[in-house]
Amino acid sequence: MTEPAVTVQNLTKVFPIPFRRTKLVAVRGLNLEVAPGQVYGLLGPNGSGKSTTLKIILGLVTASAGTTKIFGRDSREVGSREAVGFLPENPYFYKYLTGAETLRFYGKLCGLRGKKLQARTDELLALVSLEEASDRRLGGYSKGMLQRIGLAQALIQEPKLVVLDEPTAGVDPAGSREIRDLILDLKRRGITVLLSSHLLAQVQEICDRVGILANGVLVREGRVEDLLAIENQTELILENATPEVLGQISALLDQTKTRLVEQRRPQTTLEGLFLEATKTSPAPRDS
């Protein structure tokens, strides 16, 4: 049986609040699984526990309860991160390094050396279209360029799983589209992607599966098309329909020249689902 790329079981994270007796429950009893090769979107409003969940998966934060695994290895083990690349939200890399130096630095942390490191650096600079800027210091990079060099460093050791925290936050529409295309390219190459985002239209476009978090609880989870389908409705898509035809459509459909192009279940938008799911979320957050 294929090992899931990410397994989260009964995950809970409680942050004590200094000088108060209350505690903040950031994540509560979370269970989720990401299959290899999938693009999985973790959605939720600010403070819903998305970043905390990602950080626990990456071993940056310790869970209060539950387990997280990466390809079957406990994610607290440093060695499990051989298989992971991570791009945090709004990252600022070392401004004094050039694009190429940045990639070489992260490559060395992953054990790459010599010609192999140089080849990988060149390959990634080409992938994120930063060859021209490779010798410029990051202090002079635009936001979109920083996101792209960030994505390149996440890919330096050819990971099987890439974790992206708000990969398009603060990036203009063109830059955002470039990052979307890069994620789709990763998917084509069989790399698993776990991302959190607020850009719901984009998530709907690229994710195979989504989970919606609200107040630390997973309130919806599943394949995007399943979640968006509305069971008790039918959608008719008509071509060249006149207002009269529309008025009599249900009765006269068989007798008019209007062509029935497609008959299927209509869908809501991911945005609609997200707002509905987070509006009806449970739970006060303090315990």
Binding site: K55, L58, G59, L60, V78, G79, R81, E82, V84, G85, F86, L87, P88, E89, N90, P91, Y92, F93, Y94, Y106, L109, C110, G111, G150, Q153, A154, Q157, V163
Partner: peptide
Amino acid sequence: EDRTIYTILAKPVP
């Protein structure tokens, strides 16, 4: 502050 620590410790660096 710059979150560079995340990118370093998310690599296999103890």
